[in-house]
Amino acid sequence: MSEHQPPGRPLWTLYEHVAMLIGLGSLAALCLAWLPFAMLLHPVLPRALGERLGRQVIMGGFRVYLRLLGALCACRFDLTALDTLRDQGPLIIAANHPSLLDAVLIISRLPNVVCVMKAGLMRHPLFGSAARLARYIRNDGMLQIVQQSREALQTGAQVLMFPEGTRTKAFPLDPLTPTLGLITRRSGAPVQTVILEFSTPYLGKAWPLFRKPTLPLHCRARLGRRFDAPNDHHAFTLELEAYFRQEMTPPAQADQDA
């Protein structure tokens, strides 16, 4: 199906519904395929081997998933900018959070990334085993997040955080939480910002899971500024939020605000 077909035609609308089912179903199938292996390997593998294997499998699985979306679901992903981060050592990767796809996009390009994710997802029967094998970090307490993030960075991993704490409600950005500032101050690791851009708010906070997408869907990740570890995490949080807002405000609106 051509991505240039005008939206609103009956066949195109039907295709968008089918593409939604393919997208959700294929992700569930990939997770189910790895689930029994992750469950069995987590208690028996040495920690270092388990987390390395777990992260590699998740990266590879997400990469296959995005290729499938590109081939069958009229989705176009420009993620090559993320590849430059692969060999740059311990970093805190801070990204905006417009969609449920955000973590999938970033993790698909980075082999040694640890994601800070909701505690409920860590307990989820479909996603939890893989996340636990990869030693992802639960966000059920600031001190725990800070400590586990420091430990991951000390082993050479990169930590992925969405400093809004949840998907964006008030676009372009919700207020940032102070957790990321605490992690970078206590670990000394730099913060690499990533700006995620979507052609539509698909799978955003206000987009129901089973609402069809508006296709074609275009997604792009671009690297922003890299911040050194601060002395004052409160001031850093305000600076980081101001930077994200500046980067994500359309030029015409920025001129009006000025």
Rank of each mutant, 00 (worst) to 15 (best):
F198R: 05
G156K: 09
P201K: 03
G165I: 02
T168S: 08
E197M: 10
E197H: 11
T168V: 05
G165E: 14
T166Y: 07
G181V: 15
E164M: 14
Y202V: 10
M161G: 06
V191H: 05
L176R: 06
T166Q: 06
K205H: 09
Y202G: 06
T155I: 05
F162T: 02
A157L: 01
A152F: 11
P175S: 08
P208M: 04
V191F: 01
G181K: 13
A206W: 15
P175G: 11
A170L: 15
K205Q: 10
V191G: 04
T155K: 06
I183M: 03
G156M: 02
K169R: 15
I195W: 06
K169C: 13
T166I: 06
R185M: 09
T155G: 03
R167F: 13
A206K: 12
Q192M: 08
L180I: 05
Q192R: 10
L173P: 02
A152T: 07
M161D: 00
A170C: 12
S187P: 13
Y202E: 14
A152G: 13
G165F: 01
P163Q: 13
E164H: 06
L160D: 02
A152N: 00
D174G: 01
A206H: 14
L160S: 00
L196N: 09
F171G: 12
L173C: 11
T200R: 12
L173N: 03
L173H: 12
A152W: 01
S187R: 14
G156A: 03
S187V: 01
L203S: 08
T179K: 02
L160M: 10
E197P: 05
G204F: 04
P175W: 10
P178T: 15
P201S: 04
V194L: 13
L182I: 06
G181A: 14
W207R: 00
W207L: 01
Q154P: 02
A189D: 03
P190V: 10
L196T: 15
P178F: 07
G204I: 07
P201D: 09
G165R: 00
L153S: 08
P190T: 06
K205S: 08
T168E: 07
M161W: 00
T200A: 14
I183L: 04
Y202P: 13
L182P: 10
K205N: 11
L160W: 08
L160A: 01
V159M: 00
V159S: 06
Y202S: 09
A157K: 09
M161A: 01
A189Q: 04
Q158L: 00
L180Q: 10
P175E: 04
R167H: 08
P178C: 13
F198Y: 15
F162S: 01
L196I: 11
W207C: 04
Q192C: 11
G181H: 14
A206M: 13
G165P: 11
P208W: 07
V191L: 10
A206N: 15
W207I: 04
T184R: 10
T184A: 07
R186A: 06
K205T: 07
E151C: 12
L173A: 12
L173K: 07
L203I: 09
S187K: 15
E151G: 06
G188A: 08
Q192A: 09
P172Q: 11
Q158T: 01
P208G: 05
T166L: 12
T166H: 07
E197Q: 13
V191K: 00
K205D: 04
A206D: 14
